[in-house]
Design a protein around this nucleic acid. Structure first.
Lengths: 176, 176
DNA sequence: ACCTGAACACCGTTCAAGT
DNA sequence: ACCTGAACACCGTTCAAGT
């Protein structure tokens, strides 16, 4: 049996590459992780990644999109919790992935696919949070400004290290 | 006269390198700008930059520190304006430099000098904004959380494109 | 369809050598 | 003290070639 016939189905290989990229981007940062390192960790050669993804930026989009969807799914289990509690959960959940957030921001200006994903993310986050504010009984006036602001604050709390008390105080203020 | 004797004093050359780096980092981003491009624009060779700065990260610190000091100086002329007005001025003033902000965030985890500068920046921004809130008559209770949150929002407004109305609405909400 | 080895242009950084 | 040319290891990406 030849070495480069698929030992398993190609969807699984794609997932393995995404797994490896997620782990390494999270731990070493986007610029600090080479495609060679991802490939080695996934058991392939660097240029094999190009069969599954057109470039490194699009691989990053695959990584963050999968993480976002998983987080949203898990968040839905907390929909009856107070808003500040839900926001705190999001911040704690994504804090380990903060290097992914800063990478998206840093590369959105250069990479069209990252820019497009980033815009979709904000539209989605705005919509989810707006609904959260409504269910918390927030007044309709100024609701857009409030939700946009809240998304920026959550991003800021993920990308900046604060102790738990300060994080909580900010989120309480935000949800009040 | 030999070519590589200084035609002018070395402080001026250092400033020229900072000027070139500021312009190119701002326009093309940090990762999108090579030291060779900066050097050429400043009329030297790439490795000459290493006589003035230990590495590319420290050059970035030099750039952002100079921009921050200039912005703070100019801001002091507006100290009698309403707080929301001052914040709007800051956002508009630094919006063109948003690639510098995202670069600092993206590299703070990897580069000790950038991390150190970033912490100093937040300490300074917190202090300045806290005084701004006080002068605007904000209550002392919850003032820390409010200032930290406001700094995150200002960073978010700089790094995310919003139309003017939305920016203003968010800043009004923040200062109210 | 899937994977590789070899190559390409580029990058930040180092260093011995010049003036 | 200030600056350069040449080199180093590395990077993302391409492509002809293999199975």
């Amino acid at each position: 049996m030849p070495r480069n016939r698929r030992p398993q189905d190609p969807e699984a290989k794609r997932e393995e590459i995404l797994d490896a990229a997620t782990e390494l981007f999270t731990r070493l940062g986007y610029e600090g992780t080479s495609l060679k390192a991802i490939a080695t960790s996934a058991g392939v050669t660097a240029n094999t990644i190009y069969w599954y993804f057109p470039d490194k930026d699009t691989l990053l989009v695959g990584v963050v999109d999968r993480l976002l969807m998983a987080a949203l799914t898990d968040l839905s289990a907390l929909e009856d919790e107070p808003l500040a509690e839900q926001l705190l959960w999001v911040v704690q959940r994504l804090r380990d992935n903060h290097q992914l957030v800063t990478a998206v921001h840093a590369r959105a200006d250069t990479s069209p696919p990252i820019d497009a994903w980033h815009r979709r993310f904000h539209d989605l986050a705005d919509a989810v949070l707006k609904e959260g504010f409504r269910q918390a009984g927030a007044p309709e006036s100024g609701l857009d400004a409030r939700t946009h602001m809240a998304v920026l604050v959550v991003e800021g709390l993920i990308t900046h290290t604060h102790d738990g008390d300060r994080t909580r105080a900010i989120l309480d203020l935000l949800a009040s």
